[in-house]
Design a protein around this nucleic acid. Structure first.
Lengths: 148, 148
DNA sequence: TGCGTCATGTCAGCAGTCTGACATAGCCTC
DNA sequence: GAGGCTATGTCAGACTGCTGACATGACGCA
């Protein structure tokens, strides 16, 4: 067994650095969202619904990489706060299409601006072209992960 | 307020794609580590100790981006399983330097090989040069996050 | 029509992590 | 030496997310 077959120096591991940046992003997002009374998961939910109105609980869960059960709690909290609406009964099947209220849209807009600033700050060491390349490279890996 | 100031289309957001890849990596790692009886956090602990013997609980926590309290539980579990040793009393200060046992080194080596394969699979869409560039770009962002 | 399969929403239980708190040990300053 | 500050280890409680399970509704097929 050679050294090449193990992970090796962690600082040379893409996965380790990836986690580091993701942790930094999550932490920074939490920092700006918390004063607005939002968790990162709640923001993700609002952002998804803002861009894709009518998504169901299960669909939101998939796109936010959490379980249906977890997303269900997120939706319930946001609904209690009047940020979104869900029909009591499904018109077709069991999926309950969710939509943002005015309050929800307002909160999403405010949070989105703050998160945008956080991302710009985090990736500021890279030029616009480098950021686009980084995004494309990561997207390629993500696509392969789903396929594989 | 223009569209440019909000996050915009999530698929065009570096942060969103970053989380996607990180989630894929975590999931894939969990999948290969679970049969070995290890969680991702436990593997991270073993890998850190393998590369840096004598790290304290607090130092391990910082490098794995968890709290001291969480890492403390990880250490306790691994110690119960005979994978590492900690002195009962500190020779200097309060930090208890931790080291892997033979069993711990063995488990770390086995897990490391598996994780290495997972990483290679995930980043296989990119060439070696692209992977190095990706790692360097991410490292630059991580360094800026710490500084800022 | 009846059955099997799949997706969805939801409930209960459990594991992992975090926050808050406290005691201890070393360092620095006065 | 006394006091303040920092870092570390640890305990207790709360919270979040996950796994497992169940019921319901739609669809495909014999």
């Amino acid at each position: 067994m050679t050294q090449e077959e193990t992970v090796g120096d962690l600082d040379q591991s893409v996965g380790y650095v990836l986690k580091q940046v993701q942790a930094s992003l999550h932490s920074a997002m939490d920092e700006v969202l918390r004063p607005m009374g939002l968790t990162v998961a709640q923001y993700a939910c609002l952002e998804l619904l803002g861009q894709h109105p009518g998504l169901s609980n299960s669909e939101l869960a998939r796109r936010a990489w959490v379980t249906r059960q977890s997303m269900n709690l997120v939706l319930r909290r946001l609904q209690e706060r009047g940020m979104l609406t869900r029909p009591d009964r499904a018109a077709h099947g069991r999926a309950l299409p969710t939509e943002l209220t005015r309050a929800g849209q307002s909160a999403r807009r405010e949070a989105s601006v703050a998160v945008r600033a956080v991302e710009q700050q985090l990736f500021s060491p890279l030029s616009q072209a480098q950021q686009r390349r980084l995004r494309e490279d990561l997207a390629a890996c993500a696509a392969a992960a789903i396929a594989g």
